[in-house]
Design a protein around this nucleic acid. Structure first.
Lengths: 247, 247
DNA sequence: CGCTCCTTTGAGCTAAGTCAAACCCGGTGG
DNA sequence: CCACCGGGTTTGACTTAGCTCAAAGGAGCG
């Protein structure tokens, strides 16, 4: 059952879900001993993904969801004519691959922005087990619903905010998620380029850069390359609901 | 069990799901007799929603998903500071309310744009039954995944298309969905105002209006009020991937 | 050390927004 | 029946946020 020997990217599991420190992020809570043990079985295997390479790609058959253990991903969709759009950035404890369920193949690309490791969870096994463990079933539903709600937020951002509001919202969101994982509330290292940020926010990379510079001038943040330090969180929050940007 | 008498908006069910002509839109396929019968039990009741009134509202407790039987809805999210964004338009056979699952309360408003009737499906019943009927379980997963994929498309539209592309994509999408319901491939009646279209597409109502006028000048569509007739579908499709709009 | 990729900044342009006026159409009431 | 009203729509004139193009600095890596 140890497939590590046959495929360099795959490796057998050392840490069970029930012991994983990301447990409260990607698993249901309040399970008894026995249920926990069964859920451990959902994760078939781990897989390492090198920075710059894809976990899955648009068009590939869908078989599994992936829980990010370490690392950082972007997901992006593309049109035939080559333009593409980053639809999200995902970090440890988050689940990717939900897009693949409808048509049994993926409809976006997931690219590692830094070396990463994911838990591979075969979807048929998830379905099987969540028919038996109600808490798991609910958890799966909530994860999907959360993704829908998240995307509503992005639509609001893309549809009705100005550049400064978008970037402010983006930074606040990132730092808040990092904080939930035990990192600083005010410092972060961007794992993506200005162009990727721009794609996500519906802006050009130059606009992202200029907006960063503006924030720096105003003393709201300090920026050194990809390292960002938020000096005035309140100001960022004020920018996000400044209302003047209703287009 | 007939609650019609106690509440004017509610009424007992005359058409069972198994006989509903929208069956193939909102229900799983390939069920046997007995499973069908059980699924009929999911729909507790029907509810009528008058044009202009809400099916549910941001903040209200979530209990049920709704399958639209007749009518037309919009869903919209709002920020504290009062600006809002239409996140989608839904028609017969589509499911709304998925946003409520994560936090047990709704995070957007659903407003009827014409008199409508929905099937109320208590979510705990759906969960219960989908633990027993694998086909229903899969169906629920696919519906949620489909919504995620749809929103990816909207993000692409909002993030990287110009006004003409957005409107063209919008019209093609609407007419395609109407066609799947047996309506014309080329004629449609818009149920929403220019402002609502604009909100959905991230444009101002004047821009929507001007873009319509432009399409009329170019002979691509005919517009009389809310009645739209698509004269040149191919031209619309060409506009959607015109690529020059990559911003 | 030189290359490549990323980022910043400037200068000018343009798509879409803002503001304002007029129009259209269905509904209401005199 | 017609005048009026109000929401929705169209169109024009002007403004502007963000885009495009271009050039010039870093920073990391072989």
């Amino acid at each position: 059952m140890n497939r590590a020997s046959t495929h360099p990217q795959l490796q057998s599991i050392k840490v069970a879900c029930s012991n994983c420190n990301l447990r409260e992020l990607c698993m249901p809570v309040g399970l008894d001993e026995q249920q926990l043990k069964r859920i451990d079985e959902v994760v078939a295997v781990r897989r390492k993904v090198k920075r710059g390479s894809t976990l899955f790609r648009n068009g590939e058959p869908f078989t599994s969801l992936f829980a990010i253990r370490t690392g950082f991903f972007k997901t992006c969709v593309a049109t035939e004519d080559g333009r593409d759009q980053v639809t999200g950035f995902q970090m440890a404890g988050e689940i990717i691959g939900l897009d693949g369920i409808v048509h049994d193949h993926h409809t976006c690309d997931a690219v590692a922005l830094e070396d990463a490791e994911v838990c591979v969870m075969p979807f048929d096994r998830i379905e099987e087990l969540s028919r038996e463990v109600a808490a798991l079933q609910q958890h799966v539903h909530k994860i999907m619903s959360r993704e829908i709600v998240r995307e509503h937020g992005v639509m609001l951002l893309l549809g009705s905010m100005r550049a400064e509001e978008r970037l402010a919202a983006f930074l606040l969101n990132l730092v808040q998620r990092l904080h939930a994982r035990g990192f600083s509330q005010s410092e972060l290292v961007l794992r993506m380029t200005r162009e990727e940020i721009g794609s996500y926010l519906g802006l050009k990379l130059e606009t992202v850069s200029r907006t960063f510079s503006k924030f720096v001038e105003e003393g709201i943040v300090e920026v050194k390359q990809r390292h960002v330090r938020i000096v005035d969180t309140a100001a960022l929050k004020r920018i996000v609901n400044s209302q003047q940007g209703s287009h």
